[in-house]
Computed example of a mutant assay.
Amino acid sequence: MTPTDRATVDLVVPVKPLTKAKSRLRGAADGGIGSPRAHARLAMALLRDTIDAVRATTAVRRLLVVSSDPVVAAELGVFGIEVAPDGPVAGLNPAYERGAAVLREQDPATAVGALQADLPALRPAELGEAVAAALALFDAGARRAFVADTEGTGTTFLLAAPGVALDPRFGVGSAREHERSGAHPLAGPWPGLRRDVDTAADLGEAAALGLGEHTSAALTPIPGC
Rank of each mutant, 00 (worst) to 15 (best):
M1I: 10
V9D: 08
D10Y: 00
L11W: 04
V15W: 02
P17E: 11
T19S: 07
K22L: 15
R24G: 08
L25A: 12
D30F: 07
I33L: 14
R37C: 09
R41I: 04
A43V: 15
A43T: 11
A45Q: 10
L46C: 12
L47M: 13
T50E: 15
D52E: 15
T57M: 11
T57P: 15
S67N: 03
S68D: 06
V71K: 01
V72T: 13
V83R: 03
P85L: 11
P85M: 07
P88V: 08
N93M: 08
Y96W: 13
E97V: 00
E97G: 03
A111M: 06
A111E: 05
G113V: 08
A114L: 00
A114W: 03
D118P: 13
A125Y: 06
A130C: 02
V131S: 04
A136M: 04
F146N: 02
D149I: 10
T153C: 14
G154S: 15
T155N: 06
L158S: 09
V164C: 13
P168L: 02
P168V: 06
F170Y: 14
E179K: 00
G182W: 14
A183F: 09
H184E: 06
P185D: 08
L186H: 04
G188T: 05
G192H: 03
V197G: 09
D198K: 03
A201I: 06
G210M: 01
H214S: 02
S216C: 02
A218C: 14
C225E: 07
